[in-house]
Computed example of a mutant assay.
Amino acid sequence: MSAQLLVLAKTPVPGRVKTRLCPPCTPEQAAEIAAAALADTLTTVTATPGVRRRLVVEGDHPAPPGWGRTAQRGTTLGQRLAHGYADTRIAGVASLLIGMDTPQVSAGLLAAAVERLDDDAADAVLGLAEDGGWWALGLRDPAHGQAIRDVPMSTPDTGARTLAVLRARGLRVAQLPALRDVDTWADAQAVAALCTADSRFALAVATVLSPVGAP
């Protein structure tokens, strides 16, 4: 089975992205952090071998060369996720969806997740986030994305609820390594420390956040 990697993202517009970084950041600084996180994520996905790539985006941010692009639909995050799977579904192709909040993710980790979707022992892969949410969800059949439409997102039990609704459909779910995603200033510092030396996110944290100082 082939696979496609979906990146769910918002166009980095001041006042509309990473608002929990404000303060200490200004809206403009928070948008720079978001833009750097998205850029690192797109670079990593581009470097992941053997997959199709599609940006599922809110706003006018362009997709990288060689990528597909799909506009987000829906009011709630759960709806946008469910539509993201449905609107990009290709028969016989698994979908692995990640966001733009884990710029430390590696191409090796994504490739391993895709390999798990090729394993007959798993129908889905789920990467939990340290805050109780999740950073990645892969489905052998993207039609099952409808299962998460009504799952409350951005709560301490989002990951557990997502796992429960997938298992309620009879899916065999393999779990990926847990990652920390970027919501707060403390997250930004911690994740920047995990990034590679050439990370745009780490540079943005150093040059934009550091002068502001800790709250």
Rank of each mutant, 00 (worst) to 15 (best):
R16I: 03
A111W: 08
H83K: 04
A124P: 03
L96W: 07
A174L: 09
H144P: 03
V151N: 09
A107T: 10
K10L: 15
D123C: 03
W134R: 11
E32F: 14
A31Q: 09
Q4G: 05
Q146D: 14
F201H: 02
P152D: 12
Q79N: 12
D87L: 00
A37P: 09
V173R: 09
L203R: 15
R20Y: 01
A3M: 03
C195G: 00
H144W: 10
V114K: 12
E115I: 06
T196G: 12
V205S: 01
W134D: 02
L77K: 14
A206C: 13
A160C: 07
G108A: 09
T46V: 11
S2M: 15
G213Q: 08
T184W: 01
G145R: 10
D187L: 02
A214V: 14
R89K: 10
L171C: 07
L97R: 04
W67A: 02
Q4V: 03
L126D: 06
G127A: 07
M153C: 15
T19L: 08
V105A: 00
T46S: 15
P215L: 08
A121K: 09
A206D: 13
R161S: 04
T44A: 12
G138A: 11
T184I: 05
T184H: 04
T76P: 07
A39M: 12
A147I: 06
S154N: 15
L6W: 01
A91I: 04
D157I: 10
V182F: 02
L194K: 03
V51Y: 08
D101K: 00
A202N: 06
A206G: 15
A122I: 08
L179P: 00
A164R: 14
D40P: 05
A31G: 06
Y85A: 02
A35C: 13
R172Y: 02
G127N: 04
A192H: 08
P142C: 05
L21T: 02
P211G: 11
A47S: 15
L137A: 05
T196V: 08
L126W: 06
A36I: 10
G84I: 00
W67G: 01
V208Y: 08
D141T: 10
A94N: 05
D123M: 05
W67P: 00
I90C: 01
P103C: 01
L55S: 07
Q146E: 12
A112T: 05
G84P: 01
S95A: 11
L38Q: 13
M1N: 11
A30W: 02
G159E: 04
A190Q: 04
R53I: 01
A30T: 02
A124T: 03
M153K: 15
T88Q: 02
G15R: 12
G92T: 01
V114E: 07
Q189P: 04
T76E: 06
A174E: 11
A174D: 10
A107N: 12
T48M: 13
T102C: 05
D131P: 09
A94L: 04
V57R: 11
A136W: 03
A122R: 13
D183A: 14
